[in-house]
Amino acid sequence: MTTPLTVEQLQPRLGLLTLIDVRSPGEYAAGHIPGALNVPLDQLDRALPALREAAGQGEIAVVCAAGPRADNACRVLADAGIPTLTLAGGTNAWASAGRPLDQVAGARRVWALDRQVRLVAGSLVLAGVLVDLALPGARWVSAAVGGGLAFSALTNTCAMGSMLSKLPYNRPRPGTPSLDETLATLTR
Rank of each mutant, 00 (worst) to 15 (best):
T2R: 15
T3I: 14
T6R: 12
T6L: 11
V7S: 04
Q11D: 15
R13V: 11
R13S: 05
Y28H: 15
A30N: 00
G31P: 00
H32F: 11
I33G: 02
A36E: 02
N38G: 01
L41E: 00
L41G: 08
D42Y: 07
D42V: 01
D42S: 03
R46D: 08
L48Q: 06
P49H: 03
L51S: 02
R52C: 03
A54V: 07
Q57A: 12
Q57P: 01
G58D: 13
E59S: 13
I60L: 15
C64K: 11
R69I: 03
A70F: 09
D71Q: 15
D71F: 05
D71E: 15
A73Q: 09
C74N: 10
L77P: 09
L77W: 05
P83N: 06
T84S: 04
L85V: 11
T86R: 05
L87R: 03
L87N: 06
A88K: 11
G90D: 06
T91C: 12
A93S: 12
A97N: 14
A97H: 14
R99G: 06
L101H: 11
D102H: 14
Q103C: 10
V104S: 03
A105N: 13
V110H: 01
W111I: 09
A112E: 12
V117S: 04
V120T: 03
S123P: 06
S123T: 12
L124W: 09
L124F: 11
G137T: 09
R139F: 04
S142I: 04
S142W: 05
A143F: 11
A143Q: 03
A144P: 09
A150E: 05
F151N: 10
A153Y: 05
A159R: 08
A159T: 07
M160V: 01
G161Y: 10
M163R: 10
M163L: 15
L164C: 04
S165L: 01
L167A: 11
L167I: 00
Y169E: 10
P172N: 01
P177G: 09
S178K: 00
E181N: 09
T182D: 06
L186W: 10
